[in-house]
Each structure stands twice: as structure tokens, then as C-alpha cells.
Design a protein around this nucleic acid. Structure first.
Lengths: 191, 191
DNA sequence: AAGAATACTTAACCTAGATTAAGAAATTAT
DNA sequence: ATAATTTCTTAATCTAGGTTAAGTATTCTT
């Protein structure tokens, strides 16, 4: 059974016919590491679901500094929600970090799916609400925790990612420079 | 026409009967400034919509330091999404800052509304998606902008709030101490 | 396998914003 | 109106994390 159907079944149950309709509206593609699925300035046409591999979304501020918004590995959704819902140029990049198999749902198909299978409206509501909660938590963490505490939390929350993702990306995600991250790691190892 | 119906009509259109059903499931109450609608450790039973007045949501970390997550004035929604969806004890407080008239929807009523008026599923999906986008933006701003830039952005985005909300709450929202905020303000006035 | 490119480390120095403390101004309560 | 409380300001000092720079390790390319 497709991973994405399993993911949907966590929150709503589709009939076999509905699953069939759903599968007819999605497309699965393979991408090599370093592929850029979306660039800053482009209008996002699709939402992505990761079957395998790892992706990240990030922006680049004028000083050429990257900030990682999100990682996504097996079973996670990723996209540029701002550009996707407004259909205006966004400022996120989405990049493949490890060779990946990605399910793509275009905006048009998603709208059609909402008409044909109203239950999906609920699924994506729940998905957005959960994502909102984790963003709120991360926001509060950035305001109240030290870099060290944020790093520890990251390790607990995403134990698989720390092994697979390069250190500078983790540094960017928790909001410090690679140099400081390195210093902090050395300090933690001494304890 | 009720402000909350106008708010809903921005994204979905309800029939008069549906509006009637909706209104039968909500409750409007008045609260004095300083009322605490929800405390940390409690399970959130309701989502709130502000007819008038101002509220804020915030948490308090162990050091007795408050961090403002959100302000809400006329026409805005506010709640503790984490606790509301998980029905576990949350760590947010929701406080009335200015005498307010608040519309309350309990979780049970909201679930019933989803059954009876599926269009509301869409409305709250869109609401969650928009909220997600603004949290993502704020998160990136906290990672890449200086306190001064965040303050300027806040002023542009919420011009009415700066006049009405006490300075220490704005400081907390943008993520600096009241003392530093004061210093920064003095510096900006000299320019 | 060698060279090029990228990722990581270390160290000296710097700065945005925190902390502490004390006084002034504004609100709130009586 | 006045006292009490809260909010805001100013200033001195401190620190988490940034910056710059140079060297080392690792990965990628051919």
C-alpha cells in the first residue's frame, strides 16, 4: 500500500474508490540529490510528499545567508505554503539533500480532490493544524531557549536526521552559525 | 450581521440556514481586562474569536519570563491550538488586555459543525494554513532580522496594536527585553 | 588516484542584546 | 487626591553567539 495512503489514513479513512481517485491525481517522480524543486521567486505549483530520501526548504537573505525552514524525510510533507496558497512568487527554495522519490500534487488537482473527496479537506486541515503547532513551539523555543537547548531538542525530536543531514544545515535550522555550532558541539562532547 | 459571519464569508459562503445553525453553536461573552481565559496546565476547551477588545496568548518559562505568542484584536481568532487539538494540558495563557467581547466555540460544537456544515472544514483549513504562513514568516524573521528590523515590521503589520498594547508586550512579541526595547526606541527616535 | 570543492574545526576578537540596578513616569486602586 | 503598583528609561557591565581568518578533513569529480 502506498505510503501516502497510509499517511492519509492516520486522520481520515478513504474508501477503495476514493483511494483510486486520489492516486489518479498524484504523480511520483525520482530526483537526484542537489536537485532544486522550487526556487525563490517562483510560484509554487505543487505540494510534495516524501516517499524516500531527504529534502529541505530554506530561504536566502540578502547577505547570502541561508536559513533552513524545514527538513522532510520519509512520510513527511513539504512545500512553500505561502506561494502555494497565494500563487505569488515565494522566497523559499526546496532542495533534494539525498536521492528521493517524491509524490507531487498540483494545486489544480488538489482543488479537484477537495470537491470530489471532501474528507481530504479535513485531512489537510489537520495537517495544517499540526504543522502550525510545531511552528509555534519552534518559535517559542527560539525566543526562550539557548542554542544548546534547541540542539538537544532537535536531537530528541529528529534522531534520524542528525546522522544524515550535514552539520551546517542543522546549525542553520536551530539558528546559529556553523562555526558556533562546531564550538558548541566540542563543548558538549567534553561533558 | 455578526462580525464572525463576515469573517467566515471571506473564505466560504454559508446559506442562511447554515448561518443559523452556526450561530446556535457559539456563545458570546464579555470579559474585563486582566481576565485569564486559559492558564498553562489547563486543557483548552474552546477556540476564541474577538468581536472587540484585545487579547494575548503567552507562555512563561521557568525563569518567570513571559513570551508573547500572539495578539488578537477585532476580527482575529486566538486559542491554544496544541492543547485544543491534543486535549492535553497546554502551556499557554490567554489573557484579556482590553475589555473584550469574545465568541467562544467549544471543541464539541466545532466537531458537530464539521459534520453538519462540511464547508466549515474548508474554512478552518484555510484559517490554519494562513496562520501557518504567518508563523513561518515570523520564524524566519527571528532567524534573519535584527530586533530593530523586526520592530519596524511589527509596526507596519499591526499599526493599531502599537498604540494600544503596552511596550513590554511588544518587546516580548518581537523577542527582546523591555530594557533593550526602550534603548532601541530611543535610538530610533534620534534618527 | 589526484585535484577540486565543500564541510568542519579552532582561535582571536567583536557586537547585539541581556542583566542588574535605580530612578522617573504613568496607571490603578482606595 | 494620594498611595501603591506597574511601566518605562537610563546607564554600567556582561555574555551568547557572530565574524574573520586560516588550517584540516572529507566528499565529489574526472
Amino acid at each position: 500500500m502506498a505510503l501516502i495512503l497510509k499517511n492519509i489514513s492516520k486522520h481520515v479513512s478513504l474508501t477503495p474508490q476514493e483511494e483510486h481517485v486520489f492516486l489518479s491525481k498524484i504523480e511520483t517522480k525520482k530526483y537526484k540529490a542537489k536537485t532544486i524543486l522550487l526556487s525563490s521567486g517562483e510560484i509554487s505549483k505543487s505540494t510534495y510528499f516524501v516517499n524516500s530520501g531527504i529534502l529541505r526548504s530554506f530561504n536566502i537573505n540578502d547577505n547570502i545567508i541561508e536559513h533552513v525552514l524545514h527538513f522532510a524525510c520519509e512520510g513527511w510533507w513539504i512545500g512553500d505554503m505561502y506561494s502555494y496558497i497565494s500563487q505569488k512568487p515565494g522566497n523559499l527554495f526546496i532542495e533534494v539533500l539525498e536521492d528521493a522519490e517524491i509524490v507531487e500534487i498540483t494545486k489544480e488537482n488538489q482543488q479537484q480532490l477537495y470537491q470530489e473527496i471532501p474528507k481530504l479537506e479535513r485531512f489537510f486541515r489537520i495537517l495544517a493544524e499540526n504543522s502550525l503547532v510545531s511552528h509555534q513551539e519552534r518559535l517559542m523555543d527560539n525566543l526562550s531557549l539557548t542554542a544548546e537547548e534547541r540542539f538537544e531538542k532537535f536531537c530528541k525530536k529528529y534522531p534520524t536526521l542528525i546522522q544524515k543531514v550535514s552539520q551546517k544545515h542543522v546549525a542553520s535550522y536551530i539558528g546559529v552559525t556553523p562555526e558556533f555550532f562546531s564550538k558548541m558541539k566540542a563543548r558538549l562532547l567534553k561533558k
